[in-house]
Computed example of a mutant assay.
Amino acid sequence: MPTITISPKRLEELKNIPENDIDTCDIPELDASFWEKAELVKPLTKQAISLRIDSDVLDWFKSQGKGYQSLMNAVLRSYVEHHVKSSQ
C-alpha cells in the first residue's frame, strides 16, 4: 500500500484555503448505498525490529529517498502475498 507524504509547509497551505475556495463539483455525494457497501479497514500495526541487511541492499533502498523503510516493507509484503496466494 503506497504511502502519501506531504510537506509541513504544503499541509499548512492546504489548511489555510477557505472552504468556499475549494472546488468539490467533481466529488460525488455519498448516499446510503455507499455506506451500505462501506467496510472499515483498520491500519496494520507495525513492529520495530532489528534486522541485518546487506549494506548494498540497504544503500539502494536509502538511495530511493524518504520513506525507504516503508518501501522495504512494501517489497516484503508483495513477496509474502505472492507466496500466500501460490500456496493456496
Results as ranks from 00 to 15, higher is better:
Leu11His: 03
Ala74Val: 08
His82Cys: 13
Lys66Leu: 04
Lys85Thr: 12
Leu71Ala: 07
Val84Ile: 14
Asn16His: 08
Glu13Tyr: 01
Thr5Asp: 03
Pro28His: 01
Lys85Asp: 13
Thr24Val: 09
Pro28Cys: 03
Tyr79Cys: 04
Ser70Trp: 05
Leu58Ala: 05
Ile4Cys: 06
His82Thr: 15
Ala32Lys: 03
Arg77Leu: 07
Leu44Lys: 13
Lys15Cys: 01
Asp23Glu: 09
Lys62Ser: 06
Val80Phe: 12
Asn16Thr: 04
Cys25His: 10
Cys25Arg: 03
Ile17Arg: 07
Cys25Ser: 06
Glu13His: 01
Asp54Gln: 11
Ile27Leu: 02
Cys25Tyr: 04
Gln64Glu: 05
Glu29Trp: 01
Pro18Asn: 11
Leu51Thr: 15
Cys25Gly: 05
Asp56Val: 08
Val75Glu: 12
Ile27Lys: 02
Leu76Met: 12
Asp59Arg: 02
Glu81Pro: 09
Leu58Phe: 03
Asp56Thr: 09
Ser55His: 10
Lys37Arg: 14
His83Thr: 10
Asn20Ser: 14
Thr45Phe: 10
Pro2Trp: 02
Val75His: 11
Pro28Leu: 04
Glu81Ala: 15
Ser87Asp: 09
Asp26Cys: 01
Leu44Tyr: 14
Val57Ser: 06
Gly65Tyr: 01
Ser55Gly: 11
Tyr68Gln: 02
Trp60Val: 10
Glu13Ser: 00
Lys62Gly: 00
Ile27Tyr: 00
Trp60Thr: 09
